[in-house]
Design a protein around this nucleic acid. Sequence first.
DNA 1: GATATGCATCGAACCGGTTCGATAGGCCGG
DNA 2: CCGGCCTATCGAACCGGTTCGATGCATATC
Lengths: 335, 335
Amino acid sequence: MATIRDVAKLAEVSVSTVSLALSNPSRVSPKTLERIRQAVAAVGYVADPLAQSLARGRSRMIGFVVGNVGNPFFGDIRRELENYALEHEHFVLITDSSGQTERERALVEHLIGLKIAGLALAPSSFGPDYVAFIQSIKVPMVCFDQKVAGIERDFVGSDNFLAGAMLTEHLLQLGHRRIGFIAGPKHMNTASERYRGFAETMASAGVEVNPKLVVGGLFTRSGGYEAAMRLLIEPERPTAIIGANNAVALAALQAMQELGFSCPDDISLAMIDNIQWSSVITPRITMVVQDTQKLGGIIARRLLHRISNPDAVHEPPQDFVLSPRFVPGNSCKRI
Amino acid sequence: MATIRDVAKLAEVSVSTVSLALSNPSRVSPKTLERIRQAVAAVGYVADPLAQSLARGRSRMIGFVVGNVGNPFFGDIRRELENYALEHEHFVLITDSSGQTERERALVEHLIGLKIAGLALAPSSFGPDYVAFIQSIKVPMVCFDQKVAGIERDFVGSDNFLAGAMLTEHLLQLGHRRIGFIAGPKHMNTASERYRGFAETMASAGVEVNPKLVVGGLFTRSGGYEAAMRLLIEPERPTAIIGANNAVALAALQAMQELGFSCPDDISLAMIDNIQWSSVITPRITMVVQDTQKLGGIIARRLLHRISNPDAVHEPPQDFVLSPRFVPGNSCKRI
DNA sequence: GATATGCATCGAACCGGTTCGATAGGCCGG
DNA sequence: CCGGCCTATCGAACCGGTTCGATGCATATC
């Protein structure tokens, strides 16, 4: 590997001039610049990014930390960020915390050790310790998906209250009154907002919610399965079920199939968030989806804005909340 | 951030002694070691990984490069690699080439610039130029999934011939003779082997393959959809279809649904590779799956073996080929 | 014609570690 | 008592860049 000193020697200038020429060509005389350019080409010089990062104190890498890289929701966002970053000569390092807060923390610390230029984080936890940790991060960052109380950072996400409300309204209009709700973890903002959207819409419609029909508490497949089973063995079985995310809704579908219930003939089903291959699942599930592409675009733009404008540190954090989109399927029946 | 010099000052030893103590404690006297330990704790010293990598010429990071991080096949492998690497104090950098060879190359070069300790790569291409590029990589590496002719590296993958053969055999035993095959790109080893498994099993059984029933050529959803449509409008429509991967098979299912064919009553369907949520898809598709966990384990072990045994460079590359597993569903009917 | 201004270039310090050869002191055997 | 060997520690060079203050020279100003 050729170093900057090889270039300097060949071009008969000092090392510092080469460095200057490469990072700020206009500050070097045209003829010297040309000599340096030729020398660079001659020896095939490429700057060592590690040495650059060490000297500059920051690299051109962006950290991307989520709980599940395989989730298409995060995948779409990742893709947007990658493309935008690449256009701006940045490089995205993807990491996966498996939803474990400890691992997330280790990953973030490792990334900061790598002197990343910026961080896009889908927070995996909450509470004072967690908030303190996030707040201690000095690197430009954007949080997304999960709004966590106390974190004062740019945030990009969807209107989850609206998402819950839309599905509830839809089912009410189809005549459903006994609507089951498989909820997510109460402490997660997405989960509580979606539930609030459900509860308030029911209340506005003057329909009382049977507390036995609100189940769950995990956004996982197994949690959803168990919760769905509880709904299905209820004597006053619901006529429709809302899954607060894709995993619990699909688990509910599986439980229904296993118990011999037909969807939508026996029970209607609706969910929040898309899944891959949703179009080949029978029935096609009525859902409310987030505009992942737009979310990703905003995250990317916001993060790179903060990265490339050093003054942006003083800009107060801002929330970007997008409205989700209703996608009708054939999993909900009028009764 | 505390530096190694702060530690040295506080412990009243030289910088080199601190470095030595930290990397090779046995070569420092017990009492000095203790002083250094206390100093480290006192100033909260953590070595800067960037500076270490620069000085050592290699880091403790492992590059993971695949065409689609969101694919659960790669996701499972990634998880195994991450866990194993973490146990050995290595850190996995995930990157996504979107299947674009140019991007893959840029990513690999970037990772090498980061002085990664090792590389796990799912090759995205083939041909002399590509092979030459891969062969030029000096970093310890393991290739997986796609076996590429000419690349002399450790390889970990599944027996794709067997995968194709198993499904074919299954359908033959159910009485099918007019079996359609949606193939992948001919130049991809997985695709050609799967096809070969199909063709040879048919031949052994003395069943002639109608060339019109072998369609496709892309492992994508849209490619599979188009190919399936061609099969379905064929006058001599197949009684069963094999999708050479999950994407084309599910696209075929969608096409069948859209044209009003019932699976498996009208047409049977079988596929290679699993998908997420396969259990909620109606019908449950009969498939042959790869043991992703085991694949990931082998990749991880092999790579870390090469990384931590410098002599291992002389070990000749080795192929690890696992047998896939048959998972019956209810998408194939006896006729 | 002396002084101020600006520009191109350079040298040296620095980022934060590692590594190797040198040195000094302690212990051994002869 | 002295030479030889071992061990603990150190200093300096190095990895490959960046950055800032200094320098020298040419042009603009009064």
